[in-house]
Design a protein around this nucleic acid. Structure first.
Lengths: 168, 168
DNA sequence: AGCGTCTAGTTTCATTAGTAACCAGTTTGC
DNA sequence: GCAAACTGGTTACTAATGAAACTAGACGCT
């Protein structure tokens, strides 16, 4: 009954050495790496702040905006672009954040359909806490990589993404 | 409050489509790239073979095994390791594949609880068709990368994955 | 003005993924 | 030999994702 949270310490699977085709298949490698990273990060956000990734993304964009003094807030439409999530995900994330009092919806003078999402004081405070955690985690993850490798990795991922979007 | 400028906004990132530093956050970049690739590939498998990614992964592992004459088949347990999916996903994928006649379950002499999954003739035939499609797609995706860049990318993803697994 | 089209956002519904409970067979220790 | 603990696999339940229908406001056209 009281089985603890620790995973059954599975043996390292044989394919870890890159034996087999699948383990050298890029989409697979990408997916596995991405899932692992997402799981780690999702767990940390959830434990410490009760935030899920979509919510964190919205806050990250709005918080960054505030930090840069670059404006007041964004519509959900703008957030879907900035976060690469679909509008339903953004809608849900905003609803949660609003209920928690981390953002408010100000009326949009220039378009009656939409509202402007703005971080509240509390939202900005939380953001100030989450951001360092996020960056620290990123740092841990990238610990073994030199600055130039990191740069290369980011560049490659960007390139990949655009390439694929062209193909689709 | 239009602009509470505290910093010279010389370095507002103005990324491709996002505002701010989220787009330079590695977990985000990884997730976006991975999602894009998965979506493309999932669509192709589905259109041409009616296979979903979990099913394809199982077939890929079994097909590779057959190609290498490295044995007859694997238990679901072994497949969960080889595919990095959980056992429920493997169970479901195997059920579908069995219903489609692409694999059979042979009894496992050495353990009465499990069976050995083996590709049928038809399964091997399909595999022979899917594999080239998979590799071709991978090729398209990686078109802009030199061989050494590709290698580096793969190595980095592997390294990332292991790093994260250590942290978790 | 009025009508058709388009877009922002929400809600509803179908899939999918993941967790927890469970069954059957195996291993361990007494 | 047999009970307890464990493992492979399935089933049942629940949360997360995505597509499609829908509402309300905006835009364009005559």
């Amino acid at each position: 009954m009281s089985r603890t949270l620790e995973k059954p310490d599975a043996e390292i699977p044989a394919n870890d050495d890159g034996v087999g085709q699948l383990s050298q298949f890029l989409p697979y490698q990408l997916s596995v790496a991405s899932n692992a990273v997402s799981a780690l990060i999702a767990e940390r956000y959830r434990n410490r702040f009760g935030l899920k990734i979509p919510e964190w993304r919205v806050m990250a964009v709005l918080g960054d905006l505030a930090d840069n003094g670059a404006g007041d807030g964004l519509t959900q439409r703008a957030l879907t672009d900035a976060t690469v999530m679909d509008k339903v995900a953004v809608s849900r994330a905003c609803k949660v954040l609003e209920n928690r009092g981390l953002i408010t919806r100000a009326p949009n003078a220039s378009d009656g359909r939409s509202h402007i999402m703005v971080l509240t004081k509390e939202g900005r405070d939380i953001h100030k806490e989450v951001l360092p955690l996020a960056l620290a985690t990123e740092g841990e993850i990238l610990a073994g990589f030199s600055a130039s490798e990191q740069k290369r990795l980011r560049t490659m991922l960007e390139k990949l993404r655009h390439k694929v979007e062209d193909l689709a």
